[in-house]
Design a protein around this nucleic acid. Structure first.
Lengths: 145, 145
DNA sequence: AATTAGTCTATCGGATGTATAGAGTAATTA
DNA sequence: TAATTACTCTATACATCCGATAGACTAATT
């Protein structure tokens, strides 16, 4: 399961990416419209800013706005930022590799082999899912109904 | 990430499935050969027994042995048994569905749409991975080296 | 100068994951 | 039927993480 932090982050990003212009949006606006606890959201937005995805403006008329283009931000990136590794086993991650202590021979581990496949497929799907595409998907789903 | 419990369970199952005959194996044997803390392993084996995957025999010459055929046990089943849902969002699980509290419209949620795909692919891959196949994979990996 | 809004630090309760201890029970064998 | 072996159950400990909140601080704008 992904953490609430990641989920909130994605929701906030989609919300910001949906704005017509790129004017700053107040934290309290995002918080209320997306049902995210405000103080919790503050920390999340800060992290997104540090990651170079968002930027902020202080003072009256301030708030957060997109720095990167929606197409350049995908769910794999956001998940890694808040939850760390995407893989289900530490021994099949790109960025957070760790040997399984109890493992006898990693090279010939059939279990690892399976989870390696799972990770590859998952990352592939999550990378394809950028903010622009997610918004398009919403449009499609609305048309179906 | 899957829990150690799940990982230990899989390792113990593969170990038991590899035995030539289906004689009972002592907990202490599994524990030592697979580097799993014995007391922790006891609880895991009990769960696997309750799930109808293993059976046990008490007294001298006793231990745990396979009840189901290795081909009938796949990683999706084991993961669900110990870690619960496989999906990354509660709103896209088969067996543990829960609405996201903060969600505004589930039906048209683009994020959900993505994670729905990820879950389907993951479950597909994990279901294909039964114990027999895992053991075959190990054989293949050994031949490559 | 006053206002508005983001930034930082600290903290907290609760849940979960990993692991261990020890007493108790049941089956087997000799 | 006693001794042995091994499984079963309950309780507990500890660390870590997660979700959330409080409050003081700082910086930009009007």
């Amino acid at each position: 399961m992904i953490s609430k932090k990641t989920k909130y982050a994605i929701n906030a990003l989609v919300y910001l990416a949906k704005q017509d212009n790129n004017n700053p949006i107040r934290i309290s606006d995002i918080s209320e419209s997306q049902n995210i606890p405000q103080k919790f959201l503050e920390a999340i937005l800060l992290d997104l800013k540090k990651a170079g995805i968002l930027a902020s403006k202080k003072g009256k008329g301030g708030g957060y706005y997109m720095l990167k283009a929606p197409k350049e931000i995908n769910l794999a990136e956001v998940m890694r930022l808040f939850d760390g590794a995407i893989a289900l086993l530490p021994c099949v991650t790109y960025n957070y590799y760790e040997r399984c202590e109890e493992c006898i021979d990693e090279e010939t581990c059939g279990i690892r082999d399976v989870f390696y496949e799972v990770r590859n497929k998952t990352v592939e799907l999550l990378k394809k899912a950028d903010l622009e595409q997610i918004i398009k998907r919403e449009g499609n789903l609305k048309n179906i109904i």
